[in-house]
Simulated scan of single mutants.
Amino acid sequence: MSDEIIVVTPPDEPPPWWDAAVFLAGPTPRSADVDSWRPAAIELQRRWSGGRLVVFSPEPATGVVPDYLGQIGWEEAGLHLADRIVFWVPREPATMPAFTTNVEWGTWHRSGKAVFGAPPEAPRNRYLIAGATAEHVPTAQTLDETLAEALDGLSPGARRERGEREVPLIVWRTRSFQQWYRAHVDAGNELLSARVEWVFRRGARRRQVVYWALLTDIRVAAEDRVKARQIVLSRADLSSVVLFRPAPTRDETLVVLVREFRSTASTTDGFIHELPGGAGPEDVPPLEQAAAEVHEETGLSIRPDRLRAHGHRQIAGTLSAHRAHLFSAELTEREVDTLRATTDTPFGEAGSTERTWVELHTWAAIRAGDLVDWPTLGMLTQVLTDRA
């Protein structure tokens, strides 16, 4: 993979593919006698190594903006296409007030793509710096350090062509996106556009993407048509576990559920009643995650080799692209007694707001009531059918 840098200025169109892209956001000089900071920023990026890097520089090569509305559209497109948005704000109220920069910062500082830099002496940046701190946006006080922060994590890049270019690396690199995208590629479909509408991040410096949502246009090969403006929502796959104690009849089989308050609940008691399970970092195998979730949400320690795998399926296909990996384990009478003794004890992830309560129900009671949702009912049916 050979390294190259392509600088794109308005009104030019970007190249058809790249490995990474950076947008240089910040104030533009209002007069010719004021030097721009962008040439130095472009030169600093010459240390890039990771394939083809596209740098969106909103200053026209001629130094003149002939079409103001066209400039707005060009910048908006470049901001969406960029993997990193460099906000360098050497604000000077008379010559570089950075009014537009303030607007762009407000729009993009929570995107997971922003980097903020400003000289310590630059005025009226305290509010922006406070926002950067609150959102764990990398910050710096020199242009060199700001560019270093921007390039950190981009190399090596990932080649994206045509509509793929609209998927920033922060989403492109997730297993959940690649899993969804590979399914469409294998079906012969083509991603024409994919604008990021929302990304939810957590973890150290909020670098772990938990949820993402794209607004997509996809050419559907089997139907020879374009399905336009469809939202694709996804998250990391779940590991769900059916813990049960066999009984003389299937209806009498005892099943473990966990009760947890979730804001999405539309049940009569305002709680979700579900299987023990959840998601963790994408590098943790589903089996290990399943065992960890059982311990976290019920207090039981179940060795991974006791868990039987039942495959994986999408569980909310009209809403989300993520899947659940299903496992099960037969409990001993002693384990059931342990669980019965802890039904009034809250469990959950240490240091989080998660709080779960153990419940024991017969299969007949679960089917007859409305505690669980349809996917949970389906997973229980799969496990008890596989056991027959």
Rank of each mutant, 00 (worst) to 15 (best):
E4G: 11
I5F: 01
I6A: 04
P10F: 00
P11Y: 00
D12Y: 06
P15S: 14
D19I: 06
A20I: 01
F23L: 11
G26Y: 03
P27M: 04
D35E: 12
S36C: 06
R38H: 12
P39G: 05
P39M: 08
A41I: 05
I42P: 01
L44D: 00
Q45T: 02
R46G: 08
W48I: 05
S49L: 12
S49H: 13
S49T: 11
P58E: 04
V65H: 01
P66N: 03
D67W: 00
L69T: 13
L69S: 11
E75F: 09
L79H: 08
D83H: 03
V86I: 00
R91D: 04
V103A: 02
G106M: 13
H109L: 13
R110M: 10
A114K: 00
V115W: 00
F116G: 07
A122R: 01
P123Y: 03
L128S: 15
A130Q: 11
T133A: 12
E135Q: 15
H136V: 12
P138I: 03
Q141P: 05
Q141I: 15
T142R: 07
L143N: 05
D144N: 03
G157I: 01
R162M: 01
G163A: 05
E164M: 12
R165T: 12
V167F: 05
P168F: 02
V171R: 01
F177K: 07
R182T: 12
H184K: 11
A187H: 06
N189L: 05
E197I: 14
V199I: 15
R201T: 11
R207T: 14
Q208I: 14
V209K: 03
W212N: 06
A213M: 10
T216M: 04
T216Y: 02
D224K: 06
I231D: 09
S234I: 05
S240L: 15
R245D: 12
P248N: 11
R250D: 02
D251T: 08
E252F: 06
L257W: 09
R259T: 10
R259S: 08
T264C: 05
A265Q: 08
L275G: 08
G277T: 10
A279D: 09
P285C: 00
L287Y: 00
E293K: 15
V294L: 07
E296K: 08
G299W: 14
S301E: 14
I302M: 10
R303W: 08
P304L: 07
P304A: 10
A309W: 04
R323Q: 14
A324S: 11
L326V: 10
L326G: 04
S328D: 05
A329V: 15
T332Y: 06
E333N: 12
R340G: 06
R340F: 05
R340N: 10
T343C: 10
T345A: 10
F347Q: 13
G351V: 07
S352R: 13
W357C: 10
T362D: 11
T362P: 13
I366R: 01
G369C: 09
V372D: 14
P375N: 04
G378T: 02
M379V: 04
M379A: 06
D386H: 07
